[in-house]
Amino acid sequence: MHYQDRIISDYKILLGKPVIKGTRISVELILKKLSEGATVDELVSDYQVQKEDISAALNYVA
């Protein structure tokens, strides 16, 4: 999977921060929550994103 399919950066959305496509959930937020100990399942439940979105955010950073 290519992160470009799920992560976009548009200056009209969160001033151009990379976000999960179709949301205002930033890659930065995903990484912060994971570093604080949140699980992927918690993020999927709390933010209504898919597991593939989380993987794309991690691939984007890598």
Rank of each mutant, 00 (worst) to 15 (best):
S26E: 02
I13V: 13
V49S: 00
S9A: 11
Y3G: 02
V40A: 14
K17E: 09
I20D: 01
Q48T: 15
T23M: 02
V27D: 00
I20V: 09
K51G: 10
E42T: 10
V61C: 14
I13L: 06
S26T: 10
D10I: 11
K21W: 06
E28L: 11
V19K: 04
H2S: 15
I25K: 13
L29R: 07
T23F: 07
Y47S: 03
V27Y: 01
L34H: 11
K17L: 09
S35A: 11
I30E: 01
A57I: 02
I13A: 02
R6F: 01
K33A: 03
V61L: 08
E52M: 12
L43E: 04
Q4K: 15
A62D: 13
I20M: 00
D41P: 05
I30F: 00
P18V: 07
D10Q: 10
V40M: 08
D10M: 04
Q48K: 10
Q48F: 12
V19R: 06
G37M: 03
Y47M: 00
G22M: 03
V19D: 02
D53F: 03
K51P: 04
G37S: 08
R24K: 12
E52F: 05
V61D: 10
P18C: 03
V61F: 15
V49A: 05
G22F: 04
K32D: 07
L43A: 02
K51V: 07
L43F: 08
I8H: 05
I20R: 00
